[in-house]
């Protein structure tokens, strides 16, 4: 299946004084897929992401997003992408509806705040303050704000960190729904089960380089073919399955 490339990362390098955080990273993201950027802390995931998002200048290289170069037309890119930052807050003392309205202004668009909130399951929280939301609600709200400008691509930086299993699963479904509606999604995560469940393709980064890039299944097959065996035989279920079985899939909003 020939797929259209929507993001083309061309050999980007990012240096901070004498430290090189990203050492020549190249990859492509296809239209309509969920692409996962994996790797240990300090691998350069967030830096790479922020360079693509036009939030950080690269030292060398180029990124083409939907035909626009980050060096030449960053504003054009900003208009067609949505971004969720790791641990980002929102303008203080505003309720959710007012925050969405603020983003409407910032993007010069007119999205219906209530519709957007309903889409992420926060229809009844329009007049709540962001601070008072639960962890899962906060993440879903962050995702709602990435959708304000009806983006072609959204970037999610560790969207499920700190969430309980129910909230994580709930967020996974939301991300899949967005992918199915035609939005390309680039995310980072530390959870391999999450990457395996969500991502169509993953790139694994370490020490500023991409060291593997494929679909989760193919990466696993490759490893098995190389003669890898797990020391403990995998059982039919794991502790998370027990937890979900016992506490249910239903979302808890404390």
């Amino acid at each position: 299946m020939a797929r259209k490339t929507i993001i083309e990362v061309k050999n980007i390098i990012k240096k901070y004084n004498d430290f090189t955080a990203v050492k020549g990273v190249s990859f492509q993201v296809y239209e309509g897929e969920i692409f996962g950027l994996l790797g240990p802390n300090g691998a350069g995931k967030t830096t790479t992401l922020e360079i693509i998002e036009t939030l950080r200048d690269e030292t060398e290289g180029d990124v083409i997003v939907k035909g626009f170069s980050i060096n030449k037309e960053p504003e054009k890119i900003k208009e067609i992408i949505g971004i969720q930052l790791q641990e980002s807050g929102f303008y203080p003392n505003l309720n959710l509806k007012q925050i969405i309205e603020l983003f409407n202004g910032l993007y010069d668009v007119t999205s219906d705040p209530l519709k957007l909130l309903k889409k992420v399951g926060l229809g009844d929280k329009a007049t709540s303050v962001y601070k008072k939301l639960s962890g899962g609600q906060k993440q879903r709200f962050s995702i709602a704000t990435t959708l304000v400008n009806k983006p072609l691509i959204i970037f999610l930086d560790e969207p499920t960190t700190g969430l309980d299993p129910q909230a994580r699963r709930n967020l996974w479904e939301l991300v899949k729904e967005l992918r199915d509606s035609g939005i390309t999604i680039v995310l980072t995560t530390h959870y391999m089960d999450e990457a395996q469940y969500l991502c169509d393709r993953v790139g694994i980064m370490d020490e500023g380089k991409i060291i593997a890039l494929d679909t989760p299944d193919k990466l696993i097959d490759k490893l098995i073919k190389s003669g890898f065996k797990k020391e403990i035989k995998v059982r039919e279920a794991n502790l998370e399955d027990v937890f979900i079985k016992l506490t249910g899939r239903e979302l808890r909003d404390e």
């Binding site: 998002e53 036009t54 939030l55 504003e75 900003k78 208009e79 992408i81 971004i83 930052l85 641990e87 980002s88 807050g89 929102f90 303008y91 203080p92 983003f103 910032l106 993007y107 010069d108 704000t145 400008n149």
Partner: peptide, 14 residues
Amino acid sequence: LKETLVLKRFFATP
């Protein structure tokens, strides 16, 4: 606004 990355989120808009 800087510390809570609100400003950074603004930078992601045009």
